[in-house]
């Protein structure tokens, strides 16, 4: 238990320092941030004073050390565009991103589990194959393309749902569907594959011979056994999922970290960008930690090994 926490913590530190360093040097190499802030009609004195206030007149090593120091205290400086400290801005947008991701993820699981089991049980029938075909198609549409299709159908043609922002309660529907579609399709296919594997196992035969109902065997026994490999895949997918969330937020102008970061990119607002990347890194490592702990909860064999 402590070992898992420790190794994740180490990973967190490595990731944050690595990415922070990368961003730090890229920003410094690509040009003088002071010029970008000052604008094209600034005087040399203006630029010099901005350089001084940002600490850019010190040596690169000094700058890097103070950057690391600020990283530890979560101080990324003021956003160039909002003129407010960058980290609180990101934290204010975080709940919206978490809300969207959580709903999308839940949606993917709620649909994919029954769909995958159905496709496995009815593997030879037309309907089972249809589920597989649809999921193959679903896997091939990137989230922002699904977003465009959804907006076109439900906002423009049917006029049922708002096409951007998060004002009405219904606003969550299209972004979460767009974000979850790829996962839904992927998990349907994987659950079917794992499920078919498990169907041949001895414990399924034993359950049948004891007169258990199909539903009991499927949901209580098989589902529990396939949840371990599924979990490890979920852990791997988390990164891609967060990447997808950023783009979906941009498509639907969803007021989360993603929209904030895309605007920061366009305005070359590096403090905001660094704070955003930092927040996402921490989030992904923490989610991976939760996945690790879920293993322990689900599989007593792993629990025994760790203890």
């Amino acid at each position: 238990m402590i070992r898992i926490l420790g190794s994740r913590l180490l990973q967190l530190i490595l990731v944050v320092i690595g990415i922070g360093t990368l961003l730090f040097f890229l920003v410094r190499v690509s040009g003088d941030p002071a010029l970008a802030i000052a604008g094209s009609d600034a005087t040399a004195e203006n630029i010099a004073s901005i350089r001084q206030s940002l600490g850019l007149d010190r040596s690169i090593l000094e700058q890097y050390l103070s950057f690391l120091q600020n990283l530890c205290t979560l101080n990324f400086g003021e956003s160039y565009t909002y003129l407010l400290p960058a980290m609180p801005l990101i934290l204010a947008a975080l709940p919206n991103t978490l809300y969207l991701s959580f709903v999308a993820f839940l949606l993917a699981i709620v649909i994919a589990v029954p769909a995958g089991i159905y496709a496995a049980v009815k593997r030879n029938s037309f309907s089972g194959k249809a589920v597989m075909s649809i999921s193959m198609l679903g896997q091939s549409i990137p989230p922002f393309v699904i977003g465009i299709f959804l907006i076109l159908v439900f906002s423009v043609w049917l006029r049922w749902l708002p096409s951007f922002g998060n004002e009405a309660g219904l606003s969550i529907i299209m972004p979460s569907v767009a974000l979850s579609a790829v996962l839904m399709a992927r998990y349907t296919r994987l659950i079917r594959a794992y499920f078919l594997e498990e169907l041949n196992r001895g414990y399924v035969r034993t359950g049948k011979s004891l007169g258990f109902t199909n539903a009991r065997i499927w949901f209580k026994h098989i589902l529990r056994n396939i949840s371990v490999p599924m979990l490890s895949l979920i852990g791997i997918d988390l990164g891609k999922f967060v990447g997808g969330a950023v783009i979906v937020e941009a498509v639907f102008a969803w007021p989360g970290i993603g929209s904030l970061m895309i605007n920061a990119v366009k305005a070359r607002d590096y403090p905001l960008l660094e704070a955003g990347v930092f927040a996402i890194a921490v989030m992904v490592v923490l989610l991976n930690l939760i996945v690790d702990l879920l293993y322990l909860y689900i599989d007593p064999r792993i629990r025994a090994k760790v203890n």
Binding site: I19, L22, I236, G239, V242, G243
Partner: peptide, 8 residues
């Protein structure tokens, strides 16, 4: 693999 590299 675990990190959202698209962000980076």
């Amino acid at each position: 693999t675990a990190f959202p590299f698209l962000i980076v």
